[in-house]
Design a protein around this nucleic acid. Structure first.
Length: 427
RNA sequence: GGAGAGGUGGCCGAGUGGUCGAAGGCAGCUGCCUGCUAAGCAGUUGUAGGGGUGACUCUACCGGGGGUUCGAAUCCCCCCCUCUCCGCCA
């Protein structure tokens, strides 16, 4: 959520910045609504002041045994007036709040301007696309042939966009989770969190998934709970409605969770394989930082995510998302894209964002700058470190051998009981 | 699921229809005092939103939402959460 005072004073600037995102943002209704609110507020507050004063007077009169029925009758009217004005004000504030909650964050000045992903800028590349002496196959084909991935079974159980891993496939997924968490906790200084996988709507409102993107969330029927679309939601909201002490910042959390997404509107996209599923695993990195440090922390978070790919020796590149491509809540986002040889392309495997105070304002996450200082909103950041399923895809494709087996990346072997090569699962 | 108890400021904890943003204590801050430490004395310390250039001022906030009343932390209704006991369960 944007700062209403800032919006009030910089309406044109805000409109211009929002429009670089590509949508058409109509802020004309805002000023009228805002003025109406302040007008109502002024009127109702002066009536309340009067009521408070007169009520005290009534108390005094009664104590002295005098008659107060005349002013009491008068106040009854004032009270009714307050009631109706209060109702009008509440309606106005709801409208204003809904409007503000529906506005996306302002892109940071460093974000490249552009409409589509074509306009994203490549920041750097690491490694070189894997070379093969044969034509590399696509991950579904390899893993299915090895018997470690069974889409038919998943479809039987749950339909399209679900997966089922078996044997070394399941072990590989589990090892990746463990590997990532271990590095982030022991080497990068993150505290591991294992949060609930279902959250209340307030949590989704806090991070920005609601109210606008409810159609992509799985809601529990008959209950005010949602399956989390990312660990960002529960982990960021850990500190909702809190005032953190400066000494604690930055706070760094990492969490493994499954993620559940309806993928509404992505029909026909990535229908095959493990790339786009209704349920996938992810290790997330979340930070709470001061406004002064948040962009340094973003670089650090990005490096922490990159480190996983370096250890796994998977080629990747970093992309600075343009204004038209960053998400609703983000002020700036870097994507990490891993090389997938079968498609001869880089595919997103992580998204690292600084949300500045956008989520903090919604969720009420503040910190006390110094002794005596007023609480300020923190900056929140998060990024995948990494999407586990897509990492598995990258390993299967980049480490495939001509005979259809998969070499296990060296860094991962300790997490897989020393296994060096995945061969056909016999059972 | 059944039965009880409770949710008050950073924390502990009083409170009752009216002068209660809320006693008292702790913690914090500021002075004073003491050779240091400790103690002592005095003052001060919440959040949000309006108005004003400003000193300042008003409104709201005692788990949340409704209601009664001239007036609600206090009375009534609904909901949420925590704790204890019973049942059930991984």
């Amino acid at each position: 959520m944007l700062d209403i005072k800032y919006l009030r004073d910089n309406l044109d600037t805000v409109a211009a910045k929002l429009n670089t995102r590509g949508g058409e943002f109509d802020l004309t209704g805002f000023s009228a609504l805002d003025e109406k609110r302040r007008d109502l507020l002024g009127r109702v507050e002066s009536l309340k002041q009067k009521r408070n004063e007169v009520s005290q007077e009534v108390g005094k009169l009664k104590k002295e045994g005098k008659d107060a029925s005349a002013i009491m009758a008068d106040m009854r009217q004032t009270s009714d007036e307050i009631k109706s004005l209060d109702a009008e004000l509440a309606g106005c504030e709801t409208e204003l709040r809904d409007f503000l909650m529906g506005l996306p964050n302002l892109p940071h000045s460093s974000v490249p301007e552009g409409r589509t992903e074509e306009d994203n800028t490549e920041v750097r590349k690491w490694g070189t696309p894997t070379e093969f002496s044969f034509t590399p196959k696509e991950h579904t084909e390899i893993a299915t042939a090895l018997g470690i991935l069974d889409f038919d079974a998943a479809a039987k159980l749950s339909g399209a966009r679900f997966s089922l891993l078996k044997g070394a496939g399941a072990l590989l997924e589990r090892a990746l989770i463990n590997f990532m968490l271990t590095i982030h906790t022991t080497e990068h200084g993150y505290t591991e969190i294992l949060p609930p996988f279902m959250v209340k709507d307030t949590a989704c409102l806090g991070t920005g998934q609601l109210p606008k993107f409810g159609e992509d969330l799985f809601k529990i029927e008959g209950w005010d709970h949602y399956l989390i679309p990312t660990a960002e939601v529960p982990v960021t909201n850990i500190h909702a409605d809190e005032v953190l002490s400066l000494k604690k910042l930055p706070i760094k959390y990492t969490a493994y969770t499954p993620c559940f997404r309806k993928e509404a509107g992505s029909y026909g996209k990535d229908v095959k394989g493990l790339i786009r599923l209704h349920q996938f695993n992810k290790v997330e990195l979340v930070k709470f930082a001061t406004p002064e440090n948040s962009y340094d922390e973003l670089e650090g978070l990005l490096n922490n995510a990159e480190e996983i790919l370096k250890r796994l020796e998977l080629p990747y590149r970093i992309v600075d998302l343009c204004t038209g491509d960053i998400g609703f809540s983000a002020a700036k986002t870097y994507d990490i894209e891993v090389w997938l040889p079968a498609q001869q392309t880089y595919r997103e495997i992580s998204s690292c964002s600084n949300f500045e105070d956008f989520q903090a304002r919604r969720a009420g996450i503040r910190y006390k700058p110094e002794e005596g200082g007023k609480p300020r909103f923190v900056h929140t950041l998060n990024g995948s470190g990494l999407a586990v399923g897509r990492t598995l895809v990258a390993i299967v494709e980049n480490y495939q051998n001509e005979d259809g087996t998969i070499t296990v990346p060296e860094a991962l072997r300790p997490y897989m009981g020393g296994l060096e090569r995945i061969t056909v699962l016999s059972d």
